[in-house]
């Protein structure tokens, strides 16, 4: 630290000094100097992450009223409440970069900001709730564990909190799958069908291959991302295959095999055409997810107006 001071005390407002701090393993805080492109890259990534948490409540919310037991309904409600909370942590982290939540939501509604592609797939039956918790949250956790060491302080702190809470999510999904695999032939077939439909989209959650990933190079240099898309995807595959085998599920990839020399699984080619067509808006649920969000946001306008009016009539505000 003393070295950094002497060497760079003259001008801390340079990209060079910023990179020096990053390379030195320092965290960047909201009011520190940062290159404009770092700020933009972070806003894009954090807001996309926040939108994903919130949009991700929809496929799961679809099954609250039809959960097969009171126990599973309570658990699902708690999980969805967590996702809403995670969205809030992340919106707050992005707000420290000078963008307002209103702007971020406007960008989402205008189709300018993305959310995770995975939520453009439908949750058709209860087995999908198992597959979402196990595979989708499982993939998200691999990414989020890595992001706990992201270079932007508020983002990192949000990730630490989220990771603490996520650990039950994946377990609830895996428990559903394990229970169904111990059930009747029909239930086993449902679980396998869900596995078949969610496996590949889950792998796509990590994004394009490193060679085709437009934002990766800067994000790695600035330590916004700590591991590449392919590295994270491989981690997810290696930890998930034994879990699938343990409960008797087949991974829908005929090219999948253990590579003894590399101590990892080799997998088949991902259908990137599907990935890009869903990103462009042609997934099964793109329109539904967005119109649902817009409708409830607009339906809530009068509540926010009433809250503001109430504030002015009471002494509960702080001047």
């Amino acid at each position: 630290m003393y070295v950094s001071k002497q060497k760079h005390m003259h001008n801390e407002h340079t990209d060079e000094h910023f990179q020096f701090r990053i390379d030195n393993g320092e965290y960047i805080e909201p009011r520190d100097y940062m290159p404009e492109a770092y700020r933009k890259n972070l806003i894009r990534q954090i807001s996309q992450h926040a939108h994903s948490e919130v949009i991700g409540m929809q496929p799961e919310g679809n099954w609250i009223t039809r959960a097969p037991s009171l126990r599973s309904k309570q658990i699902l409600l708690a999980k969805i409440q967590d996702e809403g909370g995670h969205g809030l942590y992340l919106y707050s982290a992005a707000e420290t970069l000078g963008v307002s939540r209103t702007e971020m939501i406007e960008q989402l509604h205008a189709g300018k900001a993305k959310y995770s592609n995975i939520f453009n797939y439908p949750s058709l039956n209860w087995a999908d709730i198992g597959a979402i918790g196990w595979l989708v949250d499982g993939a998200a956790i691999v990414n989020q564990v890595s992001l706990q060491r992201t270079s932007y302080g508020p983002y990192s702190r949000a990730m630490v909190r989220i990771c603490k809470e996520e650990s039950f999510h994946q377990r609830q999904g895996y428990e559903i799958m394990a229970t169904m695999m111990k059930g009747t032939k029909d239930q086993q077939a449902m679980a396998q069908d869900a596995m078949n439909r969610w496996w590949w989209p889950a792998l796509m959650m990590f994004g394009p291959h490193d060679t085709d990933s437009p934002h990766s190079k800067d994000a790695m240099k600035w330590k916004i991302k700590r591991e590449t898309n392919d590295e994270l995807r491989q981690k997810f595959i290696d930890k998930t295959i034994p879990q699938a085998e343990l409960i008797g599920l087949t991974v829908p990839d005929k090219d999948l095999k253990w590579n003894e020399a590399a101590k990892k699984y080799d997998h088949g080619e991902i259908n990137w055409e599907e990935f890009y067509s869903v990103i462009k808006g042609d997934g099964p649920c793109n329109k539904q997810r967005l119109s649902h969000h817009i409708k409830y946001h607009e339906d809530g306008v009068w509540v926010r107006e009433a809250a503001e009016a109430h504030k002015l009539k009471t002494n509960l505000s702080v001047v």
């Binding site: 809030l88 942590y89 707050s92 939540r101 702190r157 809250a307 109430h310 509960l316 505000s317």
Partner: peptide
């Protein structure tokens, strides 16, 4: 711990 949005103290 973080931030929240709210119109008044109670909320």
């Amino acid at each position: 711990a973080g931030s929240v949005h709210a119109s008044d103290m109670k909320m």
